[in-house]
Structure formats: structure tokens, C-alpha cells
């Protein structure tokens, strides 16, 4: 059997708020095989976003290890971790988080600015990513000229433009109407099935979770099998 692409081992995360320690994750272990579409569900404050942030390398565990595609990211320094994120992670946020002064094209191009690709090569990649999300005709539009669903699709294009190892999505449909949410979920399903992308998605929405191959529940910092 192939090694899981995501290996979370005995991870504990404790936040400090003033003098108080707030344990969020307690001794969590999780494997995600390559090509998996995993949904993480749980009530607010259960630690699912924290787990997602740890997997994406934007937060660090207090204990345990997180290995993605063979790299133990919990041991990387800030600079190496930033490079690792640029290369291996595509992040989709609940509120899209596009840069308002940049066009759809420029937003999608952002992660490619950290690569050694030429301008022509970047153009090729951006156009391909925007075509995948069905917004090739909106590349000169600014975020405020797009609907919520379209903004999220641009954000997905930004997440996939570097062809990352995994895509992590934090409530990607949380700010969308039902129709737009279905479009976004269909797109994520397409990325998983057609482009074989490994996706870890946090969601509250059972309908969104249905699109995933597997759902894991987090409650009070502990992970349970669905």
C-alpha cells in the first residue's frame, strides 16, 4: 500500500490566550492517501480549522509531526516553510481573500511570481487555471466586479495554478448561496476526479461533505472515524 500523502502523527495544539492555555487538538493522528477528497466536519471550536492550518503549514503544532509528501513540515524554519507552501499547498479560504487592487488574472498569477517561470509561461499557466474554473473571459475583472461564486472560483484557480501537492479548503462554500456553492463543490470534485488532486476540506455543510470520499469528525479536539 502506498504511503499516505498527508501523515499527521500525535499532534497537539495549544493556544495561549493571556495566561491561559487553551488546548485545541489533543494527540491527533490522521492519514490522507494521495488523490483523496477528505471532509473534516465538526462543531465550531472543535479544532478542524486548526488541523487544516497545521496541514497547510501556516501554523505549527506544540507536539507531534506532520509529514506531507515525505517532508516533515513541523521541522522546517519560517523561510523554508514559506517556500514549501508556495510549492506544495493550494489554499482556498471561506472569504476568497483575493487582493482587491489586482485583476482576476493578477490574483491567480500571484503564487507564480515566486517561481522562476517567464512572463509567457506564467500567462500560459494563469489562462489554463482560469479556464479550468470557467472564468477565462473574466481575467481582466477586479474582485469587486465578480459575484461571490466567481470570486471563489478565481481563488480556486489561484490555489491550483502552481499544481500543488494538496489543496486545503476552509469552508469554501460558507459564504456562498446554494447555487454558487454547488458550482464550487462541482469544481472541487472535478479537480479531485479529473486532475487527481488531494483535497482536505473543512465544512459545516453536510451537502458539501457528501462530495468528499471520506468524512472525519472532530469534536473537542479529538478525531473520530465516520
Amino acid at each position: 500500500m502506498a504511503e499516505p500523502i498527508v501523515q499527521v502523527r500525535n499532534v497537539t495544539k495549544i493556544y495561549k490566550r493571556d495566561t491561559m492555555d487553551i488546548p485545541v487538538l489533543q494527540n491527533i493522528s490522521l492519514d490522507v492517501p494521495e488523490g483523496e477528497f477528505l471532509a473534516l466536519m465538526g462543531p465550531s471550536g472543535s479544532g478542524k480549522t486548526t488541523l487544516l492550518n497545521l496541514v497547510a503549514g501556516i501554523d505549527r503544532p506544540n507536539n507531534g509531526s506532520i509529514t506531507i509528501a515525505g517532508s516533515d513540515i513541523s521541522k522546517l524554519n519560517e523561510s523554508d516553510l514559506a517556500k514549501w507552501r508556495a510549492r506544495h499547498v493550494g489554499f482556498v479560504f471561506q472569504f476568497y481573500n483575493l487582493i482587491p487592487v489586482l485583476t482576476a488574472y493578477e490574483n491567480v498569477e500571484l503564487p507564480l511570481l515566486l517561481t522562476h517561470l517567464s512572463k509567457a509561461e506564467r500567462k500560459q499557466h494563469v489562462e489554463a487555471a482560469l479556464s479550468v474554473v470557467g472564468l477565462a473571459d473574466r481575467m481582466k475583472h477586479y474582485p469587486k466586479q465578480l459575484s461571490g461564486g466567481q470570486e471563489q472560483r478565481v481563488a480556486i484557480a489561484r490555489a491550483i495554478v502552481t499544481d500543488p501537492t494538496i489543496i486545503v479548503a476552509d469552508e469554501p462554500t460558507g459564504d456562498l448561496d446554494r447555487k454558487s456553492a454547488e458550482d464550487v463543490l462541482a469544481l472541487m470534485e472535478q479537480l479531485n476526479q479529473e486532475f487527481k488532486k488531494t483535497i482536505v476540506m473543512v465544512t459545516h455543510d453536510p451537502q458539501a461533505a457528501e462530495k468528499a470520499h471520506k468524512t472525519r469528525h472532530l469534536d473537542k479536539g479529538e478525531l473520530s472515524q465516520n
Binding site: I58, E78, A82, K83, R85, F91, F93, N97, L110, P111
Partner: peptide, 14 residues
């Protein structure tokens, strides 16, 4: 601040 956090998430360094 939020945009800077997004840029860092995308791999931009400090």
C-alpha cells in the same frame, strides 16, 4: 494585515 497573511499563506516571505 489580512492581505499580508494571505500573501504569506501563498508562500510570500516576511
Amino acid at each position: 494585515i489580512r492581505e499580508y497573511a494571505v500573501l504569506k499563506t501563498l508562500g510570500f516571505t516576511t
